[in-house]
Simulated scan of single mutants.
Amino acid sequence: MEKTVCLTRTGRENKAFRDLSHSIRAMEGEGNERKFIISFSSELPYDRWWGSEILDHSEGCVDLTRLNEIGCVLFNHHRDNVIGKINHAWIEDGRGEAEIEFDTDAESEKIFQKVSSGTLKGVSVGYVVDSWEEIMANKTSADGRFKGPASVAKKWTPFEVSIVSVPADPTVGVGREEGSTGRSFTDYERQLIVNKNLIGGN
């Protein structure tokens, strides 16, 4: 089951984060001892405070260039705590998938052992959305795949994946952190207009 959390701001960049639980699978075979296949994103809607958010995984929506060229695995989204690399990232059946490989330094080894033993099971992806499609209530997206009201991320870029110690609340599937929503002021203004239209305001 997908667990999603926190839309926050890191530094000056607006970034969002989503978590998945039980999404780590060890690879088998000689030479793969430190490699895992992870699921880091899906199209499951998530209710943000402004409404439902969906990450579109259709062809052309997700830019995996950064993950495939310089992708790192972090611990708890800390940029100074790199514990591995992303060997390959791809989209499969509406989900973001990646093969990761843990480093061998002391800090990475500690996290690797906790993942191997099943103590750490959470995966989180950090991403930036460049283009949204706003879907009104009782309407569908332009491609007919999603129902409104919802905000669909049509162009978005994952920039890192993390092993996380505290994924989303397992009892309700939702967790949040304090911080910015990752949307611009223009987005806020647009959402206010959408809200007024939904409730028949002036």
Rank of each mutant, 00 (worst) to 15 (best):
residue 65 T to E: 06
residue 125 V to S: 08
residue 104 T to H: 12
residue 158 P to G: 06
residue 51 G to P: 05
residue 198 L to N: 07
residue 101 E to N: 10
residue 60 G to N: 03
residue 52 S to L: 13
residue 46 Y to H: 06
residue 145 R to D: 00
residue 192 L to D: 10
residue 101 E to P: 09
residue 118 G to H: 13
residue 112 F to C: 07
residue 162 S to P: 12
residue 130 D to C: 03
residue 98 A to I: 02
residue 156 W to Y: 09
residue 104 T to E: 13
residue 20 L to Q: 08
residue 83 I to K: 01
residue 8 T to F: 00
residue 124 S to G: 11
residue 171 T to Y: 12
residue 70 I to L: 10
residue 77 H to C: 05
residue 164 V to S: 02
residue 43 E to A: 03
residue 124 S to V: 06
residue 140 T to C: 09
residue 126 G to H: 06
residue 50 W to N: 15
residue 63 D to H: 07
residue 76 N to W: 06
residue 46 Y to K: 04
residue 154 K to H: 07
residue 149 P to H: 07
residue 172 V to H: 01
residue 99 E to G: 07
residue 125 V to P: 02
residue 83 I to H: 01
residue 199 I to V: 12
residue 9 R to K: 12
residue 73 V to T: 11
residue 73 V to R: 07
residue 9 R to V: 06
residue 101 E to L: 06
residue 18 R to I: 15
residue 78 H to T: 01
residue 67 L to Y: 06
residue 95 R to A: 10
residue 135 I to W: 04
residue 73 V to C: 08
residue 154 K to M: 11
residue 174 V to P: 08
residue 51 G to E: 01
residue 119 T to F: 01
residue 26 A to T: 04
residue 80 D to I: 04
residue 177 E to C: 11
residue 127 Y to M: 03
residue 193 I to V: 11
residue 178 E to A: 15
residue 5 V to Y: 06
residue 47 D to C: 04
residue 40 F to D: 14
residue 30 E to K: 14
residue 75 F to T: 11
residue 161 V to D: 02
residue 19 D to M: 00
residue 199 I to K: 01
residue 97 E to R: 15
residue 151 S to G: 05
residue 20 L to V: 06
residue 59 E to I: 07
residue 126 G to P: 00
residue 45 P to L: 04
residue 24 I to Q: 08
residue 71 G to E: 08
residue 178 E to F: 03
residue 189 E to L: 09
residue 13 E to G: 11
residue 36 F to A: 08
residue 8 T to N: 09
residue 10 T to Q: 10
residue 151 S to A: 05
residue 194 V to H: 11
residue 131 S to I: 09
residue 81 N to E: 14
residue 44 L to R: 12
residue 197 N to K: 11
residue 135 I to T: 02
residue 69 E to P: 09
residue 107 E to G: 04
residue 136 M to R: 13
residue 171 T to W: 15
residue 52 S to Y: 14
residue 120 L to K: 04
residue 39 S to M: 10
residue 109 E to L: 02
residue 109 E to I: 03
residue 148 G to L: 03
residue 144 G to A: 04
residue 94 G to W: 04
residue 109 E to S: 10
residue 18 R to T: 15
